[in-house]
Computed example of a mutant assay.
Amino acid sequence: MPVNWRHNFRDGSHLCLKTLGRMGLQVAETNFTQFDGQSTIVVKRYDRLIEGNNVYRVHQEDFCQATSTLPTNKYESNRGPSALKIIKTLREARAPETEVQKFIEGLIGNYLLGAPDAHGKNYSILHLPDGRVQLAPFYDIASGLPYEHVSNDGFPKKNDGLRKAAMSIGGERQFGRVSSKHWSRFAREAKIDEEWLRMTVSAMTYALPIAMAEVFENESEAIGNSELPSKLYPKVEHLCATTQTLLEHDV
């Protein structure tokens, strides 16, 4: 039976964020705790500055706001922000090129996790008090690989919206289909160093399954008796291996 996607995305997001964080990406801090016996994932705010007894709000814009896109059009397939549009917006805001690289690492991470919901509202920028702009920590990331919608007749829907990334890479959105030519095209269109991109993708395909296994071990209390890890890990591992193979070939 498929894992119930409606009830497990919260836990999946916690595990996916922990995985990317363990790889060195900047992610929102989440922790598992219980209140009166109720299991809860607590997310620490990153849009606040604390100085002594004073707390200051840091202005945040998601990339629908930053690109004047209606939130109903948050997906690239519905005229929402693409990865290339986000990169252009960061550069126009005079963000350092390191922020562009951070976004690309997040884009790769979302792809390797099979996260279908990384749309324009799930990436943001922070406007710092000194006038600088930087990419906000990654948040709301959850793999769709263990899940599938089920019709009223009990059979999975093939076109369930969980098999494609929200943003294309070199013109391809389907998980497991991005190959060498797509990475090359993305590097050209994004005006980034192709060798750096390929090295980053390759390194992340090897590091992500290792990091995920370590997170599962450390988050045993949060996981409990959930079947999510056994459904998630093999598919993520397979997607990472496939991505590494296709990185060297065109399809």
Rank of each mutant, 00 (worst) to 15 (best):
P2V: 15
A166N: 05
L15Y: 10
A213W: 03
H127K: 14
A165L: 04
T98W: 04
Y56K: 15
L246K: 02
G171I: 09
E219V: 05
V58M: 13
L239D: 04
I41P: 03
S202F: 02
L197M: 15
A93G: 03
T243R: 03
E105D: 09
L247Q: 11
G12M: 11
C64H: 03
G37Y: 11
G154H: 10
A93N: 04
Q38F: 01
F103Q: 07
G120F: 06
H149K: 15
L208R: 02
K157T: 13
L20N: 00
A95H: 12
D36F: 14
L17W: 02
F9A: 13
Q38D: 09
M167H: 00
D62W: 13
Y111N: 09
Y206A: 12
P2T: 14
D153R: 11
D130W: 06
W5H: 06
V43Q: 13
S168K: 13
A118I: 05
I50V: 15
I41E: 09
S68E: 14
T72A: 15
D250R: 07
L232Q: 08
Y56A: 05
P81Q: 11
E221K: 10
V201W: 00
I192D: 01
I87H: 09
V100T: 15
Y139N: 11
P156N: 12
K157G: 06
L246W: 04
E92L: 15
V251K: 01
N53A: 14
R163G: 13
S184Q: 13
A66T: 13
N53Y: 07
A95N: 09
P129G: 13
R10G: 03
A118T: 08
Q134P: 00
K191C: 11
R94K: 09
A213I: 04
V27N: 06
L162E: 01
N4M: 11
A222H: 11
V150S: 09
L107N: 01
A115V: 01
L247D: 08
D250A: 07
F155S: 11
